[in-house]
Write a protein that binds this DNA or RNA. Structure first.
Lengths: 114, 114
DNA sequence: CGGAATCCCTAGGGATACTG
DNA sequence: CAGTATCCCTAGGGATTCCG
């Protein structure tokens, strides 16, 4: 692994993770394998359908997520990590574990300053 | 490691990484150990001094980065990952490696569609 | 159920100039 | 060198309504 000071490829790739809901959605899909639109909608308190639709579309365009439509009525659409998206799993796990630990760390700091 | 559908702690901690420049700055600090303000300024093409100042301040408040001021003239200020910030290193490495691979993946896809 | 279409708003961030 | 201080703007999102 190389670390040059001006390694701008980082930012290029990382753009696919930018946005308020990208990582939370990916973490849900990593945890649950396959989720329907409404599953994700419920799993992400605060998201709107518009943002969910839009973010899923972007993730699909970046080849991180696969979308599967069942031609039934009422509609049924499933989302899951694509093959390429699964390469993100170690990263998502690291993010997930650190997020929890860091959240606790901040809470502890906060507590000390009450 | 637990994965509950509504694990909102993720988002809490992850907030500290939100923003256009947080992760790029952290990756620079992970790679170089210690950097001065102007080092970071040069290492991050496109950032403004305002954003650099502001983002470093937020990272410091989240206890991810330490700031060391030398009382000399001209001013000298050094930044490095804090002890707690170093817990992010595995995550940053994962992000860094994936960012490069993903960037290549997208470029390849793009190429095929020319 | 899984969206699409509108309208709307503000805060995140850019550009520039100045300072101890 | 390492920031402040201002002004400014738009695009990323929020809320709501409608649709097959």
């Amino acid at each position: 692994m190389s670390f040059e000071p001006l390694d701008c490829h980082i930012d290029d790739g990382l753009k696919s993770l930018l946005g308020k809901w990208k990582i939370p959605i990916l973490i849900q899909l990593r945890a649950q394998q396959v989720l329907r639109f409404s599953d994700l909608y419920r799993a992400l308190p605060g998201i709107t359908k518009k943002m969910l639709t839009q973010t899923l579309k972007e993730l699909e365009e970046d080849d991180l997520v696969n979308r599967k439509v069942y031609p039934v009525v009422p509609p049924k659409v499933e989302y899951q990590l694509s093959a390429h998206g699964q390469e993100l799993i170690p990263t998502l796990d690291a993010l997930h574990a650190w997020g929890i630990a860091h959240s606790a760390h901040l809470a502890h700091k906060q507590h000390r300053h009450d």
